[in-house]
Simulated assay, not measured.
Amino acid sequence: MDSRKQRLAWKENTIGYLFLAPSLLLFCMFLFYPLLKSVYLSFHLTDLRGHVAAFAGLENYSSLLRSEGFWNSLLVTVKFTLLTVPAGIAAGLLLAALTHTKLKGMRVFRFIFSVPVAMSVSTSSVIWMMLYHPTTGMLNYGLSRLGLAPVQWLTDPAWALISISLMTAWMNSGFNYILLLSSLQGIREEIRDSARIDGSSPLRTFFQILMPLLSPTLFFLTVVSVMNAFQSFGQIHILTKGGPAGSTEVFVYSIYKEAFVNFQFGTGSALALVLFVLILLLTWVQFRFVEKKVHYQ
Rank of each mutant, 00 (worst) to 15 (best):
V223W: 00
V78W: 08
T123D: 10
I209H: 08
W71N: 06
I238Q: 14
E249D: 07
F220Q: 10
S23A: 14
A54K: 13
V261N: 13
S225R: 01
S201N: 09
T222A: 05
I112Q: 06
Q235W: 08
N262Q: 11
A149Y: 07
I15P: 02
V261T: 14
A272Y: 00
V277D: 03
G246H: 03
T168H: 12
K293G: 14
I255T: 02
L26S: 11
D2K: 03
G50W: 01
I255R: 04
A158S: 14
G266Y: 10
K257M: 11
W71D: 04
K37Q: 13
G234Y: 07
N172D: 04
L131F: 15
L273K: 03
L166M: 12
Y177C: 01
A97N: 06
I236C: 10
S163N: 11
T81E: 14
L281V: 14
V121A: 15
F207H: 06
V274R: 03
H51M: 12
F265A: 07
H295Q: 14
G266F: 09
G266T: 10
A91Q: 07
H44K: 12
S122E: 09
I197T: 12
G92I: 02
Y177K: 08
A21R: 05
T155P: 09
I112A: 12
L8Y: 10
F230N: 02
M167E: 10
L18D: 07
F260E: 06
Y40P: 03
T84I: 02
S173F: 04
L166Q: 05
P212I: 01
I197C: 11
E68H: 00
L210G: 02
S114Q: 03
F80V: 05
L275S: 12
M29T: 07
S144D: 01
L218N: 09
R188N: 12
G69H: 06
T123V: 15
F265W: 05
L74P: 02
S67T: 03
